[in-house]
Design a protein around this nucleic acid. Sequence first.
DNA 1: ATTACACCCTGCCTGC
DNA 2: TGCAGGCAGGGTGTAA
Length: 312
Amino acid sequence: MPELPEVESVRRGVDEWTSGTTITGAEVADPRILGTTSQRRIDPSAVSGFVSAVTGAHILRAERRGKFMWLCLGEGADLSTADPVASPVPRPELGILVHLGMSGQLRIHSPGEEIHRHTRAILHLSDDGGQPRELRFVDQRIFGHIGVQPLVHGYGRLVPASAMHIAADPLEPAFDPERVMGDLAKKRTAIKVALLDQTLVSGIGNIYADEALFRAGVHPLAVPGRTRKSRLVAVLESATKVMSDALAVGGTSFDALYVNVNGESGYFDRALLVYGRGGQECVRCGTEIVKITVGGRGTHYCPVCQKPPRYR
DNA sequence: ATTACACCCTGCCTGC
DNA sequence: TGCAGGCAGGGTGTAA
Protein backbone atom coordinates (compact mmCIF):
# COMPACT_ATOMS: atom_id res chain seq x y z
CA MET A 1 0.00 0.00 0.00
CA PRO A 2 2.49 2.60 1.03
CA GLU A 3 4.34 4.51 -1.65
CA LEU A 4 7.03 7.13 -1.26
CA PRO A 5 5.00 9.79 0.62
CA GLU A 6 3.61 7.24 3.06
CA VAL A 7 6.98 5.58 3.66
CA GLU A 8 8.62 8.97 4.16
CA SER A 9 5.93 9.96 6.68
CA VAL A 10 6.64 6.75 8.54
CA ARG A 11 10.41 7.24 8.28
CA ARG A 12 10.18 10.69 9.85
CA GLY A 13 8.27 9.31 12.80
CA VAL A 14 10.59 6.36 13.17
CA ASP A 15 13.63 8.62 13.02
CA GLU A 16 12.17 10.93 15.64
CA TRP A 17 11.35 8.12 18.05
CA THR A 18 14.27 5.73 17.52
CA SER A 19 17.40 7.65 16.60
CA GLY A 20 19.75 7.68 19.54
CA THR A 21 18.11 4.68 21.15
CA THR A 22 19.65 1.30 21.89
CA ILE A 23 18.01 -1.98 20.94
CA THR A 24 17.71 -3.99 24.13
CA GLY A 25 15.98 -6.99 22.58
CA ALA A 26 13.73 -8.17 19.80
CA GLU A 27 10.89 -10.58 19.15
CA VAL A 28 9.77 -12.16 15.91
CA ALA A 29 6.18 -13.38 16.17
CA ASP A 30 6.01 -14.63 12.57
CA PRO A 31 9.30 -15.71 10.95
CA ARG A 32 7.83 -15.16 7.48
CA ILE A 33 8.37 -11.44 8.01
CA LEU A 34 12.12 -12.09 7.80
CA GLY A 35 11.88 -13.31 4.20
CA THR A 36 10.57 -11.88 0.99
CA THR A 37 7.23 -13.00 -0.40
CA SER A 38 9.02 -15.33 -2.77
CA GLN A 39 11.17 -16.88 -0.06
CA ARG A 40 8.72 -18.00 2.52
CA ARG A 41 10.53 -20.97 3.96
CA ILE A 42 12.48 -19.36 6.73
CA ASP A 43 15.32 -21.21 8.39
CA PRO A 44 14.50 -21.64 12.09
CA SER A 45 17.86 -20.11 12.96
CA ALA A 46 16.85 -16.90 11.17
CA VAL A 47 14.85 -15.69 14.16
CA SER A 48 17.63 -16.14 16.70
CA GLY A 49 20.09 -14.77 14.15
CA PHE A 50 18.02 -11.62 13.73
CA VAL A 51 17.54 -11.14 17.46
CA SER A 52 21.21 -11.56 18.28
CA ALA A 53 22.27 -9.34 15.37
CA VAL A 54 20.15 -6.38 16.49
CA THR A 55 20.35 -6.70 20.26
CA GLY A 56 22.75 -4.17 21.71
CA ALA A 57 22.96 -2.13 18.54
CA HIS A 58 22.61 1.62 18.59
CA ILE A 59 20.19 3.26 16.15
CA LEU A 60 21.82 6.25 14.48
CA ARG A 61 18.97 7.35 12.24
CA ALA A 62 16.30 6.19 9.82
CA GLU A 63 16.89 6.53 6.08
CA ARG A 64 14.81 5.83 3.00
CA ARG A 65 15.07 5.33 -0.73
CA GLY A 66 11.86 4.90 -2.68
CA LYS A 67 9.69 2.55 -0.64
CA PHE A 68 12.62 0.98 1.21
CA MET A 69 13.58 2.31 4.62
CA TRP A 70 16.25 1.25 7.06
CA LEU A 71 17.72 1.98 10.46
CA CYS A 72 21.45 2.70 10.38
CA LEU A 73 23.14 0.83 13.18
CA GLY A 74 26.17 1.86 15.21
CA GLU A 75 27.98 0.09 17.98
CA GLY A 76 26.56 2.11 20.83
CA ALA A 77 29.11 4.92 20.87
CA ASP A 78 27.74 8.41 20.37
CA LEU A 79 29.21 8.99 16.96
CA SER A 80 27.89 12.51 16.60
CA THR A 81 30.23 13.87 19.27
CA ALA A 82 33.28 11.85 18.29
CA ASP A 83 36.35 13.93 17.57
CA PRO A 84 36.56 13.78 13.76
CA VAL A 85 40.32 14.26 13.81
CA ALA A 86 41.27 11.86 16.56
CA SER A 87 38.76 9.25 15.43
CA PRO A 88 37.01 9.81 12.11
CA VAL A 89 33.31 9.12 12.34
CA PRO A 90 32.90 5.58 11.07
CA ARG A 91 30.18 5.03 8.52
CA PRO A 92 27.55 2.55 9.58
CA GLU A 93 28.07 -0.83 7.99
CA LEU A 94 24.83 -2.48 8.99
CA GLY A 95 21.22 -1.51 8.74
CA ILE A 96 17.83 -2.93 9.61
CA LEU A 97 15.90 -2.89 6.37
CA VAL A 98 12.14 -2.50 6.56
CA HIS A 99 9.85 -2.77 3.57
CA LEU A 100 6.18 -2.21 4.33
CA GLY A 101 4.93 -4.15 1.32
CA MET A 102 1.20 -3.65 0.82
CA SER A 103 -0.05 -3.58 4.39
CA GLY A 104 2.94 -3.00 6.66
CA GLN A 105 2.98 -0.47 9.49
CA LEU A 106 5.63 0.61 11.96
CA ARG A 107 4.17 1.77 15.25
CA ILE A 108 5.71 3.28 18.36
CA HIS A 109 4.36 1.95 21.63
CA SER A 110 5.06 1.90 25.32
CA PRO A 111 5.72 -1.55 26.78
CA GLY A 112 2.53 -3.20 27.93
CA GLU A 113 0.25 -1.55 25.41
CA GLU A 114 -2.14 -3.92 23.69
CA ILE A 115 -0.51 -5.93 20.90
CA HIS A 116 -2.29 -5.75 17.56
CA ARG A 117 -2.99 -9.23 16.24
CA HIS A 118 -0.98 -8.70 13.06
CA THR A 119 2.16 -7.71 14.93
CA ARG A 120 4.99 -9.69 13.30
CA ALA A 121 8.08 -8.31 15.03
CA ILE A 122 8.99 -6.01 17.90
CA LEU A 123 12.19 -4.10 18.62
CA HIS A 124 12.62 -3.24 22.30
CA LEU A 125 14.35 0.10 22.64
CA SER A 126 15.83 2.16 25.41
CA ASP A 127 16.36 5.89 24.98
CA ASP A 128 19.35 7.71 26.44
CA GLY A 129 17.39 8.31 29.62
CA GLY A 130 16.80 4.58 29.96
CA GLN A 131 13.11 4.86 29.14
CA PRO A 132 11.77 1.75 27.39
CA ARG A 133 9.93 2.00 24.08
CA GLU A 134 8.83 -0.43 21.40
CA LEU A 135 8.95 -0.27 17.64
CA ARG A 136 6.36 -2.74 16.35
CA PHE A 137 6.09 -4.04 12.81
CA VAL A 138 2.46 -4.81 12.04
CA ASP A 139 1.64 -6.38 8.69
CA GLN A 140 -1.68 -7.97 7.82
CA ARG A 141 -0.60 -9.58 4.56
CA ILE A 142 3.09 -10.24 5.26
CA PHE A 143 4.15 -8.75 1.94
CA GLY A 144 6.56 -6.63 3.92
CA HIS A 145 9.82 -7.74 5.42
CA ILE A 146 12.51 -6.80 7.91
CA GLY A 147 16.10 -7.93 8.21
CA VAL A 148 19.65 -6.99 9.11
CA GLN A 149 21.78 -6.27 6.07
CA PRO A 150 25.16 -4.88 5.17
CA LEU A 151 25.08 -1.40 3.68
CA VAL A 152 26.48 -1.28 0.16
CA HIS A 153 26.90 1.35 -2.53
CA GLY A 154 23.96 1.82 -4.87
CA TYR A 155 23.20 4.85 -7.06
CA GLY A 156 25.39 7.22 -5.08
CA ARG A 157 24.49 6.18 -1.56
CA LEU A 158 24.95 3.51 1.07
CA VAL A 159 21.85 1.33 1.01
CA PRO A 160 20.90 -2.09 2.34
CA ALA A 161 22.07 -4.92 0.10
CA SER A 162 18.57 -5.90 -0.98
CA ALA A 163 17.93 -2.33 -2.17
CA MET A 164 21.15 -2.09 -4.18
CA HIS A 165 19.26 -2.38 -7.46
CA ILE A 166 16.62 0.17 -6.48
CA ALA A 167 17.04 3.45 -8.36
CA ALA A 168 17.12 6.84 -6.66
CA ASP A 169 13.74 8.41 -5.97
CA PRO A 170 12.73 11.88 -7.23
CA LEU A 171 12.96 13.47 -3.77
CA GLU A 172 16.60 12.62 -3.02
CA PRO A 173 19.74 14.52 -4.04
CA ALA A 174 21.15 11.51 -5.92
CA PHE A 175 18.19 11.58 -8.32
CA ASP A 176 19.42 12.09 -11.86
CA PRO A 177 16.54 13.18 -14.09
CA GLU A 178 18.74 13.08 -17.19
CA ARG A 179 19.59 9.44 -16.66
CA VAL A 180 16.00 8.51 -15.90
CA MET A 181 14.79 10.33 -18.99
CA GLY A 182 17.36 8.55 -21.12
CA ASP A 183 16.41 5.13 -19.78
CA LEU A 184 12.68 5.85 -19.86
CA ALA A 185 12.85 6.90 -23.51
CA LYS A 186 14.19 3.44 -24.39
CA LYS A 187 11.26 1.59 -22.82
CA ARG A 188 8.89 -0.21 -25.13
CA THR A 189 6.38 -1.18 -22.47
CA ALA A 190 3.38 0.87 -21.35
CA ILE A 191 4.47 4.05 -19.57
CA LYS A 192 2.36 3.07 -16.56
CA VAL A 193 4.45 -0.11 -16.24
CA ALA A 194 7.69 1.88 -16.63
CA LEU A 195 6.68 4.26 -13.84
CA LEU A 196 6.22 1.31 -11.51
CA ASP A 197 9.67 -0.10 -12.38
CA GLN A 198 11.66 0.59 -9.22
CA THR A 199 14.97 0.02 -11.02
CA LEU A 200 14.19 2.98 -13.28
CA VAL A 201 12.86 5.45 -10.72
CA SER A 202 11.83 4.44 -7.25
CA GLY A 203 9.02 5.43 -4.93
CA ILE A 204 6.17 5.60 -7.44
CA GLY A 205 3.40 3.08 -6.81
CA ASN A 206 0.05 2.41 -8.39
CA ILE A 207 -1.75 5.42 -6.94
CA TYR A 208 0.79 8.08 -7.81
CA ALA A 209 1.48 6.55 -11.23
CA ASP A 210 -2.17 7.08 -12.18
CA GLU A 211 -2.20 10.55 -10.64
CA ALA A 212 1.01 11.60 -12.39
CA LEU A 213 -0.23 10.41 -15.80
CA PHE A 214 -3.54 12.22 -15.38
CA ARG A 215 -1.89 15.45 -14.31
CA ALA A 216 0.51 15.26 -17.25
CA GLY A 217 -2.30 14.35 -19.66
CA VAL A 218 -0.57 11.16 -20.81
CA HIS A 219 -2.39 7.90 -21.51
CA PRO A 220 -1.24 4.96 -19.33
CA LEU A 221 -0.72 2.78 -22.41
CA ALA A 222 1.48 5.31 -24.20
CA VAL A 223 4.85 3.79 -25.09
CA PRO A 224 7.73 5.91 -23.75
CA GLY A 225 9.92 5.12 -26.75
CA ARG A 226 7.28 6.60 -29.03
CA THR A 227 6.33 9.57 -26.88
CA ARG A 228 7.71 13.11 -27.14
CA LYS A 229 10.48 13.84 -24.64
CA SER A 230 8.56 16.88 -23.39
CA ARG A 231 5.65 14.60 -22.49
CA LEU A 232 7.93 12.22 -20.62
CA VAL A 233 9.46 15.11 -18.73
CA ALA A 234 5.97 16.31 -17.83
CA VAL A 235 5.11 12.88 -16.43
CA LEU A 236 8.24 12.72 -14.27
CA GLU A 237 7.66 16.26 -13.03
CA SER A 238 4.04 15.43 -12.25
CA ALA A 239 5.09 12.35 -10.32
CA THR A 240 7.55 14.41 -8.28
CA LYS A 241 4.98 17.12 -7.64
CA VAL A 242 2.12 14.82 -6.68
CA MET A 243 4.30 12.86 -4.27
CA SER A 244 5.64 16.05 -2.67
CA ASP A 245 2.11 17.37 -2.27
CA ALA A 246 0.97 14.10 -0.74
CA LEU A 247 3.90 14.06 1.66
CA ALA A 248 2.99 17.54 2.82
CA VAL A 249 -0.34 16.24 4.13
CA GLY A 250 0.93 12.95 5.50
CA GLY A 251 0.28 10.70 2.50
CA THR A 252 -2.78 8.85 1.27
CA SER A 253 -5.00 6.70 3.47
CA PHE A 254 -8.00 4.83 2.12
CA ASP A 255 -8.53 2.80 5.23
CA ALA A 256 -6.79 1.72 8.41
CA LEU A 257 -4.03 0.00 6.45
CA TYR A 258 -1.87 3.07 6.11
CA VAL A 259 -1.09 5.07 9.21
CA ASN A 260 2.02 6.76 10.55
CA VAL A 261 3.97 5.64 13.63
CA ASN A 262 1.34 7.20 15.88
CA GLY A 263 -1.56 5.53 14.10
CA GLU A 264 -2.67 8.67 12.29
CA SER A 265 -4.01 8.69 8.71
CA GLY A 266 -2.87 10.88 5.84
CA TYR A 267 -5.19 13.24 4.03
CA PHE A 268 -4.16 13.05 0.39
CA ASP A 269 -7.03 10.73 -0.54
CA ARG A 270 -9.11 13.90 -0.83
CA ALA A 271 -6.74 15.24 -3.46
CA LEU A 272 -6.73 12.18 -5.71
CA LEU A 273 -8.07 13.09 -9.13
CA VAL A 274 -8.36 9.71 -10.86
CA TYR A 275 -7.20 6.88 -8.62
CA GLY A 276 -10.18 4.89 -7.37
CA ARG A 277 -12.60 7.09 -9.33
CA GLY A 278 -13.60 4.65 -12.07
CA GLY A 279 -17.13 5.43 -13.33
CA GLN A 280 -17.10 8.91 -11.79
CA GLU A 281 -16.83 12.18 -13.69
CA CYS A 282 -13.44 13.59 -14.59
CA VAL A 283 -12.77 16.66 -12.42
CA ARG A 284 -11.50 18.51 -15.48
CA CYS A 285 -13.89 17.63 -18.32
CA GLY A 286 -16.72 15.60 -16.81
CA THR A 287 -16.07 12.51 -18.92
CA GLU A 288 -16.44 9.20 -17.14
CA ILE A 289 -13.15 7.93 -15.67
CA VAL A 290 -12.21 4.55 -17.14
CA LYS A 291 -10.68 1.69 -15.22
CA ILE A 292 -8.54 -0.89 -17.04
CA THR A 293 -5.77 -3.29 -16.07
CA VAL A 294 -2.19 -2.43 -17.03
CA GLY A 295 0.69 -4.61 -15.94
CA GLY A 296 -1.73 -6.47 -13.72
CA ARG A 297 -2.68 -3.33 -11.78
CA GLY A 298 -5.91 -1.40 -11.67
CA THR A 299 -5.38 1.70 -13.80
CA HIS A 300 -7.62 4.78 -13.89
CA TYR A 301 -7.62 7.51 -16.51
CA CYS A 302 -9.74 10.03 -18.36
CA PRO A 303 -10.16 9.04 -22.02
CA VAL A 304 -10.50 12.68 -23.05
CA CYS A 305 -7.81 14.38 -20.95
CA GLN A 306 -5.43 11.49 -21.62
CA LYS A 307 -5.71 10.86 -25.33
CA PRO A 308 -5.02 7.28 -26.40
CA PRO A 309 -1.80 6.80 -28.38
CA ARG A 310 -2.39 6.92 -32.16
CA TYR A 311 -0.01 4.09 -32.87
CA ARG A 312 -0.77 0.48 -31.99
C1' DA B 1 18.54 -8.00 -22.46
C1' DT B 2 13.85 -6.89 -21.98
C1' DT B 3 9.33 -8.01 -21.02
C1' DA B 4 5.30 -10.77 -19.15
C1' DC B 5 3.31 -13.23 -15.67
C1' DA B 6 2.55 -16.15 -11.62
C1' DC B 7 3.01 -16.01 -6.98
C1' DC B 8 3.59 -14.83 -2.02
C1' DC B 9 -0.53 -13.55 1.95
C1' DT B 10 -4.95 -11.96 4.46
C1' DG B 11 -9.21 -9.68 4.49
C1' DC B 12 -13.04 -7.49 2.47
C1' DC B 13 -16.53 -6.84 -0.92
C1' DT B 14 -19.64 -8.44 -4.58
C1' DG B 15 -22.70 -11.41 -6.73
C1' DC B 16 -24.97 -15.70 -7.08
C1' DT C 1 -26.85 -16.66 5.17
C1' DG C 2 -23.14 -18.97 2.78
C1' DC C 3 -19.67 -19.26 -0.29
C1' DA C 4 -16.84 -18.74 -4.45
C1' DG C 5 -14.43 -15.40 -6.83
C1' DG C 6 -12.29 -11.09 -7.48
C1' DC C 7 -9.73 -7.42 -5.77
C1' DA C 8 -6.21 -4.66 -2.98
C1' DG C 9 -1.64 0.60 -2.68
C1' DG C 10 4.47 -4.38 -3.88
C1' DG C 11 8.39 -7.03 -5.19
C1' DT C 12 10.60 -11.11 -6.88
C1' DG C 13 11.69 -15.34 -9.52
C1' DT C 14 11.15 -17.50 -13.69
C1' DA C 15 10.43 -18.12 -18.38
C1' DA C 16 9.64 -16.66 -22.97
